[in-house]
Amino acid sequence: MLSMKNISKVYQTEKVQTHALRDFTLEVSEGEFIAVTGPSGSGKTTFLNIAGMLESFTSGDFILDGVNVGQLNDNQRADLRNQKIGFIFQGFNLIPDLNLFENVEVPLRYRGIKSAERKRRIMECLEQVGLASRAKHLPQQLSGGQQQRVAIARALAGEPRFLLADEPTGNLDSLMARQVMELLEEINRNGSTIVMVTHDPELARRAPRNIQVVDGQIADFTLYQHGGASVPRKSNTVAAVNPMSVEV
């Protein structure tokens, strides 16, 4: 469903070449829930941005749902992103001028869905996250946890094949973080594929599959069964600790 082979991402400035990802290879199957962990600056967000087609990659192959992403132009990537991917951000990223209904409506408008169908889907998604009664509220009238639930509803509204979550609980207290995590698990049980970047090892353990990214490469991955019990840990090819930046 999502296949990355030897993906590299190099940021080039006049003096410094920074390898954000190197030979990054990953296969994600339909219905998986993957947690991506790793230290700051390890390349987790770059991986997520490339997976969400928000950023281009320097080399490698990236197939998303049968489409070779490397061959798409910017507009085609935007269309594919709109149809296949839902984003959940750490900072929620709700548009402050729009009420909850209108925020959830944004991806649907860009897809050109008719008004009646939009309304049905929006209310369904807000219902799912328990905020249907507050559809006319503005984001700033909600708590952080509620805002993140709206962001999840917005990500779900387009019925995407993938949900990409970047530290979805990073700005929440533990209670709200647990609620959001439970919501994501429920969404996953309903069939959505989720890739979640997190710093929180406890949250990561709740995902059936963990990937650890170090220095732009997959260092380890772990499979858990039923929320916590690990199965034998597989070692991936772990490169020696390489400096991320080299002088050029």
Partner: peptide, 16 residues
């Protein structure tokens, strides 16, 4: 620009 980033992430293309 940040709002535009959100819109782009949610599927808006450059033309829109």
């Amino acid at each position: 620009v940040p709002e535009v980033g959100v819109r782009r992430a949610l599927g808006a293309n450059k033309r829109q």
